[in-house]
């Protein structure tokens, strides 16, 4: 594979790259902030409606069972850890280890999505809790977790592209902003799930 391209390449990283990387990093962080506001708005809506004085959980809805969700959350958090080590290994030039950690992240991400599908299936067909038919619980739960699941899906696609690009030798030890951005995004998705897990299953 493209291990050769990971040789130290002094001189290839020019001033233009350093400055544009700084701009892209800043822009990407601002994008994450505004995405965070999007989630916060829906979280605010959920907490607001939950506390609007009609009792919780609403009639006809059971409290969510935490057992499976706990396992599924750990799967996603684990993928955050593998992604972290993927980036670390890339930084220090261990290309193959980077690839394996990246693939592990993708597998864990897909596992999480499968777990979400299982959970949805259980809720919709097992307990008859639906998006439109279960009042504010269904509205906020399916909207927020659905948005999050969509973000995970986008992240999985992004990481798959990263695998292909890395195999083609796009990233070198000096120029790997795409991997940094992917790591930032994946951590962001994880952290959003920490909040969603807490407010839906633990609160």
């Amino acid at each position: 594979m493209a291990v050769a391209s990971l040789a130290p390449d002094a001189g290839e990283v020019d001033q233009l790259y350093i400055e544009t990387r700084e701009l892209r990093l800043q822009g990407f962080l601002f994008f994450l902030i505004s995405d965070c506001v999007l989630f916060s708005s829906f979280i605010f809506a959920y907490l607001y409606m939950r506390n609007s004085g009609q009792g919780w959980p609403p009639p006809g809805v059971q409290r969510l069972d935490v057992a499976f969700a706990a396992w599924n959350s750990v799967v996603l958090f684990g993928s955050g850890a593998t992604m972290h080590y993927a980036l670390e290994n890339f930084k220090y030039g261990h290309f193959m280890r980077y690839m394996w950690f990246l693939l592990a992240t993708i597998v864990l991400g897909v596992m999480f999505l499968g777990g979400q599908a299982y959970e949805y299936n259980h809720l919709i067909f097992g307990e008859h809790v639906t998006w439109a038919g279960s009042g504010i619980f269904g509205a906020s739960f399916f909207t927020l977790t659905g948005m999050h699941g969509f973000h995970v899906f986008i992240g999985v696609c992004y990481l798959t592209v990263l695998v292909l690009q890395s195999a083609a030798g796009v990233y070198t030890r000096g120029k790997y902003f795409g991997i940094t951005a992917g790591t930032l995004y994946w951590h962001f998705v994880d952290v959003i799930w920490v909040v969603l897990f807490s407010i839906f299953y633990l609160l």
Partner: peptide, 19 residues
């Protein structure tokens, strides 16, 4: 028909005003 703002199904019109 997802009842965010629909008071007949537990939603809250005032929440729209807040947001």
């Amino acid at each position: 028909g997802v009842p965010f703002y629909d008071p007949t199904k537990g939603g809250s019109p005032v929440m729209w005003q807040h947001m």
